[in-house]
């Protein structure tokens, strides 16, 4: 065996916890000539809860897609707990503890709630290729049932997803993102379309997550975003516009002009 190079040692040391949960350096994404996201640099500490705000087309979802590997960035590097994952396919990043939810629920509508969550639990386990069915005392099935309780879907356990209400589908989406042992989660507008009661439940779930589980949340509802996040990043036209504490961002006149006053592309 060759002796590990210094950079490899540094990589491993930084991967053990001293590094940021998420570190973006000069990440850009172009669709043809269109810059969906340009020169984004962003650091999120482990356990940090960050809100990303911005009008439609600001590049928030593109940011998520680049981080999870749904598509690769045009340029720049992405580090996840110190490890350079820029060229990793999506499933490799997920297996390292990254999770996400989708703005428009991407669920398996023909399957039941429990089967959807079970699939999510299997996906980050070693039983992905198992030809054996789950037994009644299966550990993955048990953790799927725990997740169902966490998002209050017990009554719909065996309901096909197609028959769920919109709010229930959003809750299922969150449960699936919590499968396995997530280290960092990206929530893409989890509160969109929810009733006020469902919003309160969502805030309870998000604030009740274990302290080490950091996340980024994209949210148009300032009330939700500022209540669950400890720091805020404002995006505008594919670039980072401002970063700060929720209170600073809320009081910032430029932000107010842009976001609350209704931007030209809002």
């Amino acid at each position: 065996m060759n002796a590990p190079t210094t950079s490899a040692i540094a990589e491993r040391m930084s991967a053990t916890g001293t590094a940021n949960a998420l570190e973006l350096r000069n990440v850009s994404k172009f669709f043809g000539a269109l810059a969906a996201m340009e020169d984004i640099s962003l650091s999120v500490r482990p356990g940090e809860r960050r809100a990303v705000l911005g009008s439609n087309g600001a590049g928030k979802t593109t940011l998520f897609n680049c981080v999870t590997g749904d598509f690769l960035p045009t340029s720049g590097t992405i580090r996840f707990f110190g490890e350079d994952v820029s060229a990793f396919p999506a499933h490799e990043r997920i297996r390292r503890g990254l999770r996400r939810t989708y703005q428009i629920s991407l669920l398996f509508s023909g399957l039941t709630v429990i089967d959807n969550i079970y699939l999510a639990c299997v996906g980050v386990s070693r039983e992905r290729f198992s030809f054996l069915r789950a037994r009644r005392d299966d550990a993955l099935m048990a953790s799927a049932e725990d997740l169902i309780r966490l998002v209050h879907l017990e009554d719909a356990t065996h309901t096909p997803v197609a028959e769920l209400s919109y709010g229930q589908q959003r809750q299922l989406e969150i449960a699936m993102a919590l499968s396995g042992a997530p280290r960092f989660i990206l929530f893409d507008e989890p509160a969109a379309g929810l009733s006020p009661t469902e919003r309160r439940e969502l805030i309870d779930i998000l604030t009740g997550l274990p302290g080490h589980m950091g996340f980024i949340i994209i949210e148009h509802d300032m009330d939700v975003a500022l209540r669950v996040a400890e720091s805020v990043t404002m995006m505008h036209n594919g670039r980072i516009f401002k970063e700060g504490k929720p209170a600073e961002i809320e009081d910032d006149p430029e932000v107010q002009a842009l976001y609350l006053g209704g931007g030209d592309d809002g």
Partner: peptide, 12 residues
């Protein structure tokens, strides 16, 4: 049904 979602659940 949804290859993209499966990749985001950790499946190759």
């Amino acid at each position: 049904d949804n290859p993209r979602r499966m990749a985001a659940l950790g499946y190759n």
